[in-house]
Write a protein that binds this DNA or RNA. Structure first.
Lengths: 348, 348
DNA sequence: TCTGGTGGCTAAATCGGATTAGCACTCGGA
DNA sequence: TCCGAGTGCTAATCCGATTTAGCCACCAGA
């Protein structure tokens, strides 16, 4: 079923059929009769426009590229993709997905490959917020960064979680509960240089936490940097903290670390939140399933994914209009999920 | 940079350039001189074939579609996609990804949309093994099913995890450890009709478990069907089992249920594996992080994803050659991950 | 010398649409 | 009566490749 078939069935030229089917009939004052005939023929023949052909002629394929460093490492990634997919479909676009595995050459290949397929635009995503160079210096395809900031000269439109506010809110939750001493960090040290490399998120959270406590006249009791933010290091770090005595509250820099912390606390016979309060970041499904439920500041992955598509589309059809115009990154709020792991400090 | 530019730079016709660049120079006895000139020009101009154009002319776009019901619900899903993505890239193909959210109309729309973009083939995936109808009755695009079996008349090539063998292996692990009584099922009942609807996996596992124990002269002590396989129902089910007395071993139908079981056992003051052994299915990352580490039969999601692409490619360029030829589904082994949650039965 | 074959390359058609230029006809005003 | 300005539609070109059909020069055999 091609356009020519429809045109023939409607008894018009394919030019006319094309015009009608791309909704330009009114604009070009085609007769209502002709318009109806074409529409009917198209419906009866179950005609669908061949997007490859349209792409060749117009250069627009209705397809976007989404390249991330790692898709499956964490569930989070999945949700980011899910959000992007959703939003793209809502806008009638399809997503070509690629995963570079963190390798720069692979990424380059992937981006080129998407360029070959004439994607209209690109989302370049990172699983963990970090700095990176401009992904598409030579490709002349509009691109936005997701969960990453460009170090290049020309700013690339960017979507980021608001990590600073998240750190502040986490600190406030503990302050509101009454914790003023014995607050420890799990995953990072108390000084900005004791943070995993490239971890923009950690730096911002740490800064916010430190300041917020300081403004309340509270000094952090200590922290333990962890090379990887997974349960075993979290367990070790917490054991180490326990050797200094019973902490009042633990700020775990992600939920996995918090799982390790739970295990160490259980080992030591301490109860959450009666003896020790715990707050974390990310809100992976596990957080809701732990006993007691883990209070955590959610990384809005799905919304990040959606926002990246919106930003890209703004960029595509607005030029500098909308959010894409200002050089500032789009920051998405990280909501606190209140569960049962934070309580008042133990009185003794 | 178009083919015409390359041809001009090399001083040949675009026909010749096309021939050279698609590796048919030898076959058509073009002179070595011409071949070299074209290759050099292409390299110097950094020429890349426009795949959209090729797609229009040849009908092959070097792009496959991957449609699943839910991408992000579980990590597993992510790994399946990751595997598919990997394999596709290894073969120089790109993946157009779609998520139907389980809605049949959305799926139809998605498939049509991919058809419009001339995908060479389709993988239709399901997160949980289940029966479904042929996804592409009208689309004339080759398709394979992943983690789903077709109920249609003409069999669709399919990739499935070998759930039966998995059930058998789980049972053997317990038998080998010495468990001969007090073995309970968490997630399903002991009879085949007490299984969540559409759960092909559960049916096969259950059958295998029952038979394997029966062959060893062991009868299952009981089971608890759960509406959803998540930690809270697992916790409830285990509490209910504990009211009958101390079980010797628990077969949890997935890792989430096992997490609930761990919580119930901890509540009751029972230790794993000294008092109660636990074995489960899936091998999500959490399984390795639980204390003690959860012995579980892994769902090879990544491999499933990879295999689906291989099967699809066989179908595309083999016709009925390779695995695609036989009507039988491709079955992938589910390896047992031995950790610490299974031990000998308590002697008293 | 003419014919037939073949080695080496290219003009032109093609894929399925979008777009541009322009045709044929009507109507109102000078 | 003639001109200019619509009105309603279409022929032809183009996008960037692949593929078909075929051209031209050269050489061997009759």
């Amino acid at each position: 079923m091609t356009l020519a078939d429809v045109a023939r069935a409607a008894g018009v030229s394919s030019t006319t059929a094309s015009l009608v089917l791309s909704g330009r009939a009114r604009e070009l004052r085609l007769s209502v009769d002709v318009e109806e005939r074409v529409v009917r023929a198209a419906r009866e023949l179950d005609y669908r426009r061949n997007i490859v052909s349209v792409g060749l002629r117009t250069g627009r394929t209705g397809t976007l590229g989404f390249v991330s460093d790692t898709v499956a490492t964490s569930q989070l990634a999945g949700n980011m993709i899910k959000g992007a997919l959703e939003r793209a479909h809502e806008r009638g676009l399809m997503l070509l997905i690629g995963e570079s595995g963190g390798d720069a050459d692979d990424e380059k290949r992937l981006l080129a490959s998407m360029g070959d397929r004439q994607v209209d635009g690109l989302v370049v995503a990172s699983m963990f917020t970090r700095e990176r160079e401009d992904p598409t210096p030579d490709l002349h395809v509009p691109a936005v960064l997701l969960n990453a900031v460009s170090t290049g000269a020309t700013p690339v439109p960017t979507v980021l979680p608001d990590e600073w506010a998240a750190g502040r809110d986490a600190a406030r939750v503990l302050l509101d509960a009454g914790h003023r001493e014995g607050v420890y960090l799990v995953g990072v040290g108390t000084s900005p240089d004791e943070v995993p490399p490239g971890g923009v998120a950690a730096v911002e959270r740490l800064d916010a936490i430190t300041r917020t406590f300081a403004e309340a006249g509270v000094e952090l009791a200590g922290g333990r940097p962890c090379a990887t933010w997974e349960p075993p290091p979290g367990l070790e770090a917490t054991r180490s903290i326990l050797q200094e005595g019973r902490p009042s509250a633990l700020v775990c820099f992600n939920d996995h670390l918090a799982l390790g912390a739970y295990q160490a606390l259980a080992e030591a016979g301490l109860r959450v939140p009666e003896d020790v309060s715990v707050i974390a970041f990310d809100d992976i499904p596990l957080a809701a399933w732990l006993r007691p439920g883990l209070t955590t500041v959610a990384l809005p992955h799905r919304e990040l994914g959606r926002a990246s598509i919106d930003l890209l589309c703004d960029l595509l059809d607005g030029g500098t209009a909308g959010a894409a115009g200002t050089g500032e990154p789009v920051r998405l709020a990280m909501p606190v999920r209140h569960r049962e792991s934070v309580g008042p400090p133990r009185s003794d």
